[in-house]
Design a protein around this nucleic acid. Structure first.
Lengths: 302, 302
DNA sequence: CCGCTGGATAGGATTTTACGATGCTGCGCT
DNA sequence: AGCGCAGCATCGTAAAATCCTATCCAGCGG
């Protein structure tokens, strides 16, 4: 248990600097008896007489006091540095931001977001992480991330959600599929086709809900948690898929041609949002990044 | 002005270490609401949320909190180190002692005193200084010295004095002086001899007082603040002197023979003492050295 | 000897810190 | 599904710390 306070150290060092209790009192804007008592108490608590009192002539450090005071000043600056850093961390836009992103969203949006934000605020560094929705939730709740970029689907109550933009899901077909003739694909047309499901929460429930809302029971032929594996499977002609994320270039990793078609029906759009733990008080850095994301997607859309 | 206390930091770090307020409470022996309130206040004062609260599952640091806590732990160990050092400085026999000595006493006694003390307490270092009585007083009052070794003559009221030993003053004569025939020299025999005065306070008044008490008005032919210069002057046959300090070997620096004779009269002895500022609370190191000096002179005399 | 300077003390108001008791909420067990 | 448990927050209150104003007291200088 510590037996002295930073306040006491602060006062003692000020008395040292000014050579007298009275001078320190004037300089600190604290009553002289306050300093006198504080010093007496500090001396009692550390069991060391710090100053020699000269009547009407101030005080001077004792030999042992001198050693304490030198060290005490170090401690004081240490404490002041910490305070400065922390006040800055709460109010300035600098330091580290921990951003997590849903795996399929990250590649398209995180790099440009970071690029534009850090060029506005060069003193900011951003740590990135990816994961499934559950991992993002866990990370936010566990304090691993400040913010998470994800789809606004099945969000628990303890998060705040800031919608950024939305995308209509599309049908993904093998390049040579007969339905590629259609400009827009009605969901009923997929009724009997084999379905390749992107199997990550919450995408899984989102996609099946779209189909079931249209009265279709999807025939899940394959499923994978990897977007690129799903695209590869479709490319191989093993079925169709319904996706929101649309990488640049309509080819799978293996090179097969893919066809992307809008859905003719009115369907629930995939809403990309920024989530934060509701109970977390946001630092200015976090708020600034949040605002930046909103801006970014507004200007991208326009 | 610092906006947080070491106590708050201590508690916050403990909460971090134990993963929950309740666990920290049990470990610190402090009521849980106390920690809870202390933490809330700290968070408010530094403007940062440090922990995320999990209902019935403890707390975990937020991303920003983690950075604070890491730094805070450094500060805490810094503060604890300082406290440990200072408690040790007050109670253990280690660290630095600042010892001043009256110039003529130093050469004979300071080296053996230090030798014996540091061999008993190897962790002690001793800084030495020499000076005239006035310089010793000033240094003690100004906090430059812990203790001063001096003659107990004309001591102001604001010092404590610990007598260590005493020496009878002696008459110093040129080697060939006619009075060297006497085994003891009565002071009246010096009545018309030229006197060489060791002119340092308080020796000056001490020696003249001895002579005047015997009804003699000394004929001061020469005076010098240096013991060895006085001995040299006597060696040259320029007069006699009265001294207390008696170096080994009865020759001056220049090599002239000197004769030392006891004083036949009953005279005031020169009392060597250890002085400290009365208002100074003594550290254990200072007390130990004081006790050692008393011991040392008791055994030397025996 | 008197006034000035500067530290210590006294008394009292305010703030802080601590406690016990209790409330509230999510998790896990039955 | 409900219930108990775990764990943080809140409330009320007592004790302690902090700070203020007013005053005292001791050296020093004129």
């Amino acid at each position: 248990m510590l037996r002295y306070t930073l306040r006491q150290v602060e006062y003692a060092v000020a008395i040292w600097d000014h050579g007298s209790v009275a001078a320190a009192s004037a300089h600190l804007g604290v009553a002289q008896p306050t300093l006198s008592a504080s010093l007496a108490k500090l001396e009692e608590q550390i069991g060391l007489q710090l100053f020699i009192r000269h009547h009407a002539q101030g005080v001077s450090p004792s030999p042992a006091g001198l050693r304490f005071l030198a060290e005490a000043r170090n401690l004081l600056t240490h404490a002041q540095d910490l305070q400065r850093d922390m006040l800055a961390a709460g109010t300035a836009i600098e330091g580290q931001l921990s951003l997590a992103s849903f795996a399929t969203i990250a590649p398209s949006f995180v790099p440009p977001l970071i690029k534009t934000f850090t060029s506005l605020h060069p003193k900011v560094t951003i740590r990135m992480a990816e994961g499934t929705q559950d991992e993002l939730f866990k990370g936010l709740r566990g304090g691993d991330f400040d913010l998470a970029l994800l789809y606004d689907v099945d969000m628990p109550e303890d998060f705040t959600v800031t919608p950024l933009t939305s995308f209509a899901p599309h049908v993904l077909l093998p390049g040579k599929h007969r339905l590629t003739r259609l400009k827009n694909v009605p969901l009923v047309a997929l009724k009997d086709e084999p379905f390749v499901l992107l199997d990550i929460a919450p995408s899984r429930t989102y996609f099946t809900r779209i189909l079931e809302t249209a009265g279709i029971v999807p025939k899940v032929a394959f499923s994978s948690p990897s977007l690129e594996v799903v695209r590869g499977l479709v490319g191989q002609g093993l079925g169709y898929s319904i996706l929101v994320t649309r990488p640049y270039g309509d080819h799978s990793y293996a090179g097969e041609e893919l066809a992307v078609r809008p859905i003719a029906d009115e369907v629930e759009r995939g809403v990309i949002a920024l989530a934060a733990l509701r109970q977390m008080r946001k630092t200015r850095l976090v708020s600034a990044f949040e605002a930046h994301c909103v801006d970014f997607f507004r200007t991208v859309k326009a």
